[in-house]
Structures are given as C-alpha cells and as structure tokens.
Design a protein around this nucleic acid. Structure first.
Lengths: 203, 203
DNA sequence: GTCTATAGGGTGATAGAC
DNA sequence: GTCTATCACCCTATAGAC
C-alpha cells in the first residue's frame, strides 16, 4: 500500500518482525482490549523495541487493522480445514466443537472477533465497521453449509448459529464459567443433528 | 426527587447532580465505551462543571460503579413491571418484545449490560467482575419464569435465553442491522410458545 | 533498517478560592 | 457545597543518531 509493492514479495524484511507485531497485537488486544493496550505492550509482547514499531506501522490504528488481518487469516485457516470434512453437518459440528475447545480462553477474554468488533463499534472513525467483515465471513461460510443441507432459510440459520456463539461467549466471559460453552455447545450440536435429520426443508 | 429526600440518608445533595452524573455516565459509557469516555464528556452530558465531578465521585472507577447501579435499577424496574403480567410465558415474551423494541439502540451501541461487561472483563482490578452481577440478575429472573413453567432445566434455559439476547445484540451491532433483533426475537418468542405448550417437562 | 530520546497532547486528579 | 485553575503523568508519535 505505502511502498512500491504490497504483494507477498518486495516488502522490506526484518526477520518477520512485522508478522510478529501483527499477531502480538491481535493477542494483546484480545486480552486487554484495544484502548487499554499501549504500543509499548505490543512491542514487548513481540520482543521489538518500542520506537521500531513505527517503522512497520505508522499509527496504532494500522496495528488494529493488522490484527484484524491476522484474525481473518486464522478464520480462513479454520474454515479451510473444515471444508475437508465429508458433509455439512459434520463440518458445522466440528466448528462448534472448536468453540467449546476454546472455552477457557472464551471464559477469560471472550470471543476474539466478537470483543474486538464490540470495542471498535464504539468508535466513529472508519475502523468502527472493519471488524464486521470478519464476522460476516464466518456467517457466510455457515450459510453455505446450511444451504448444502438444503435449507431455504440458510441465511437466518447462519445468523442464529453465530449469534449463539457470540452469546455464549459473552456469558461465559462475564460469568467466568467455561461450562456455559460446554452446555450451549452441546445444545447447538443437537440442534444441527435435528436440522440434518429433518432433511431438505424451508423455515 | 429534588433535594428534599436524597434517599433516606443524610447524604450531601446538590440538586440531584449525583444522580444526573450517574445516569449520564451510564449513557455515555454505553455510547462511547468506558475507556474512550473522559470525565469531561460525562460532566458535559450531565451539565455539571468538570471539577465538580470529583466532589461526588472520587475516581472514574466510582463513576463506573455508579453506572452499574443505574443499570441494576433499570433492570429491576423492568422485571418489576413484567412481574405484574399474568403468566410466565407472557412475561418472558414481553421481555423479548422489549429487546426488539430497543433494536435501533442495540444495532448502534449493543446491549448496555453486555458491552459494559465485556469491556470491564478486560480489566484486572476489582471491577472486572462487577458487571457480571447485573447479567446474573437477569438470568436469575428468567430462571424463575422457566421454573414456573415447570421446567427442571430452568437454569440452562435461562442461560440460553440471555445468551441469545447477547448474541443477537452483538451481531446486530457489528453488522449494524436492527433486523437481526427482529428476526431472532420472533424466533425466541416461538421458542417460548413451544416450551409453554409442551407443558411441565424436564430437559 | 534499527533503535533512542524526546516532543507534544490529552486525561485523571488535586488544591484551594468563593 | 460549588467551581476554577492547574498539576503530574502517560501515551502516541516524531526526529534523528547509528
């Protein structure tokens, strides 16, 4: 974007410091929130001197964008692996199982996407809608799965599934109870089974 | 509720400024988030000179606690009114209808409790668990209703209901789509109907 | 390219006049 | 009790040495 080349190749190299900073930012933002996180926190987590951060990212906001990119990459990695599973119901249940596996993290820090989206939505600059894209990607993927299950209301079901994930994450986090993830996850898996058994059907 | 009462105690009063500050804090925190809100923002919203704030609240954190109190009061007002309705299914559906009514606010700023809880959970001081109490109160009330419906799994159902509310608020907010609240609200009302029709039953 | 030192701006909090 | 003036600190961002 800034330099001559934004592709995969001609970027200035620094021992992967840029990547380290981006993923450190994603993690620290998740743990502390964007507003409470200082550039010094990120520099420390990435093991990079504070002033050097500005060589890679001109502003703190650019670091937020980079963190969003890291989340996007992580999500497409997950859906990519799920896509190798044989059928849509299995894929959806594996997605849910993954959420439940992360229950301890969710109970302590909430959903990495959801909490970031909620925080950015409080802003009024251009970043206030940037996180929505990541969530939208997850919803779109789920919608595709429900459609493969033959559901006409795939879009609504996808929203319902992701909303359930966000909701159980918020409660697990607020109450500090990972068991909320376990119980609600089980319920969601049964729900998927019901939908799959009922076969192709509309709302 | 001017100067004359100030509760039942002998607290210093100043034309209800303390209350104005508390409710202004709750609103501004909801709109901007705690971290991005300055004391000056709150003073302005409450129409109180900045320096005067410190006469009523020694620290910003005390203002957060006061905002939590305002939320608690608001919630008990809501459940109090709902309790006058004839049966538990009607009460639960009225609760849901109230959420849907607030869809525009939820789409812009999220759930007032949920977003505050999420933000406070990023902290490590004593406040990181304070918001949980308000959510817990809502869950407990819902659990009572489900129990009156004869459900053995009232506790799980209450968590499911409040999680659904939090989830649809997060998505409506992130996507800026109030319709998410409408659609998911309708689904929840149907769900309550199903539970009520199926009569006293366990999980 | 890498890093240090520091400027500059804003915020929470206090002292003390009225 | 009310409010102004101001301090002290921290954080983002920059200038410039290496």
């Amino acid at each position: 974007m800034t330099d001559s080349q934004a592709g995969a190749k001609a970027k200035p190299r620094g021992g992967g410091k840029r990547e380290r900073l981006a993923s450190a930012a994603a993690e620290v933002f998740h743990h502390q929130g964007v507003e409470r996180t200082t550039l010094s926190d990120i520099a420390q987590a990435a093991d990079v001197p504070l002033g050097n951060v500005y060589y890679y990212f001109k502003t703190k906001d650019q670091l937020v964008e980079a963190a969003l990119g890291a989340h996007r990459d992580r999500l497409s990695g997950i859906t990519g692996r799920l896509d190798r599973l044989p059928d849509p119901a299995t894929r959806l249940k594996a997605l849910i199982a993954g959420w439940v596996e992360q229950r301890e993290v969710a109970a302590r820090y909430g959903c990495p996407f959801g909490t970031l989206a909620a925080e950015l939505d409080k802003r009024e600059d251009g970043l206030d809608q940037a996180a929505a894209g990541v969530l939208r990607g997850l919803i779109d993927w789920a919608e595709g799965q429900f459609r493969q299950l033959g559901r006409d209301d795939a879009s609504d079901l996808a929203v319902e599934l992701v909303a359930a994930y966000q909701g159980m994450s918020v409660l697990a986090n607020a109450l500090r109870e990972p068991e909320v993830m376990t119980r609600q996850g089980r319920r969601l898996e049964e729900w998927i089974d019901t939908l799959a058994r009922s076969g192709p059907a509309g709302a």
